[in-house]
Design a binder for these strands. Structure first.
Lengths: 160, 160
DNA sequence: GACTCTCATGTAATCTTATAACATCTCACA
DNA sequence: TGTGAGATGTTATAAGATTACATGAGAGTC
C-alpha cells in the first residue's frame, strides 16, 4: 500500500502533472475533458483537502463560469465516476485523486485539526472487510474507507 | 471478526433484547434512556436497514411525539454517541447497533438492491488502513468502513 | 415544599447538500 | 446542412442538518 498527502512537495508541478495525466486519459478513453471539468479538477488539486460542492461553485462563480449547483455537481460527477476525484462521505466533500487513472479502492485519512486528507490504496477483497464479506457471502462492489484523526504535523502541535 | 444481519432470526426477541441491553447499560452508565430515545432505537431496530432522520421523524410525528427535525437528530445523536446506533455515511442514514455496548469500530455491508445492512467489527489498527496510517504516522481516532454490493439473497435473485 | 441547576424537549427559522426538469448549445459525423 | 448525443445554463425544489431560544422535568439542597 502506498500513501501520499501529508508530505511537502512541488505543488505546481503536482497540479500540472495531474491535469496532464487526466487530459491524456480522457483522450485515450474517449472522454470529454471540457473547460469546466478541467477547472474543477484544478481547483480540487490546489488543496490537499476536501472541498464542498458549494465551495467549488463559489470559485466557479467568481470566475464567471456557471453559477448554479448543477454545474459543480455535474463536473464533480464526471471526475468521480472516471476516477479523477473522490467523494469523502464523512465530509460530504470532494478531493482530487492522487493516484489518478485506473479503477481503485481508495482509503482516506482525514486530519480533524488541519483538514488535510491523505489517500492510500486498498485491496477490498483483502483485509478485515474482505474477510467479513466472505464469511457471510457478501459481494463487494465499492468501498468507503475513511479514518479521522490527527496527521503527523498536528500531533506535534497539539500532543493531547 | 463477527457478522450479523442477513440471516433470519426471531426479530421480536432481537428487538426486546437490544432494548433491554440498552436500558441496562444506560442505567449502569448514568445515562437517561428517555421515551423518545427508546422509541427511536425501537424504530431503528425494527428493520435491519438504515433509516434517514426524516423517515424516523415521520414515524415520531405519526405517534404524536415531537415533529421537528431536532427531536429526531437529538435522539439519534444520543444513540450514536453512546454506541447504540451508527450513522451510515454513504447513505446519510442511521441503523441500530447489532453489537450494542462497548466502544467499537464497526464496518458495514450495504446491499444495493434490498438495502439490508450487516454490521461487522474491525480492529482499526490492524489491516490495510492501520498499516497505511502507521506508514505515514497518522493517528486514527475514528473510522468509517462501508462496503456496497450484493447480499447473498440478492446475488441469487439477480445473478448478473 | 420551594429553589435551582442540569439536562431534555418543543418549535421556528435557517443553512447546507443535492437533484429534477427543461431549455439551449456544441460539435462530430452523416 | 441536418441531426443526434452529450454538455451546459437556469429555475425550482428536495433532502439532510443545525442554530437559537423558550419550556419542561427531575435530582439534590436548603
Amino acid at each position: 500500500m502506498e500513501s501520499l498527502g501529508f508530505e511537502t512537495h512541488d505543488h505546481a508541478l503536482c497540479i500540472s502533472d495531474c491535469i496532464a495525466s487526466a487530459d491524456a486519459q480522457c483522450k485515450s478513453r474517449g472522454l470529454k475533458f471540457t473547460p469546466v471539468r478541467k477547472r474543477v479538477l484544478e481547483i480540487l488539486l490546489q488543496e490537499h483537502r476536501a472541498l464542498g460542492a458549494y465551495e467549488i461553485l463559489d470559485r466557479l462563480r467568481a470566475e464567471g463560469r456557471g453559477s448554479q449547483p448543477p454545474v459543480a455537481y455535474r463536473a464533480l460527477d464526471f471526475l468521480v465516476s472516471n476516477g479523477f476525484a473522490h467523494k469523502i462521505e464523512r465530509l460530504n466533500a470532494f478531493i482530487a485523486c492522487t493516484h489518478p487513472g485506473e479503477d481503485h479502492a481508495p482509503a482516506f485519512m482525514i486530519c480533524r485539526q488541519c483538514s488535510a486528507v491523505a489517500e492510500a490504496q486498498t485491496v477490498p477483497t483483502k483485509g478485515q472487510l474482505g474477510q467479513a464479506a466472505r464469511d457471510i457471502g457478501f459481494q463487494i462492489e465499492r468501498t468507503v474507507v475513511e479514518a479521522e484523526g490527527l496527521c503527523p504535523k498536528c500531533q506535534e502541535h497539539a500532543p493531547l
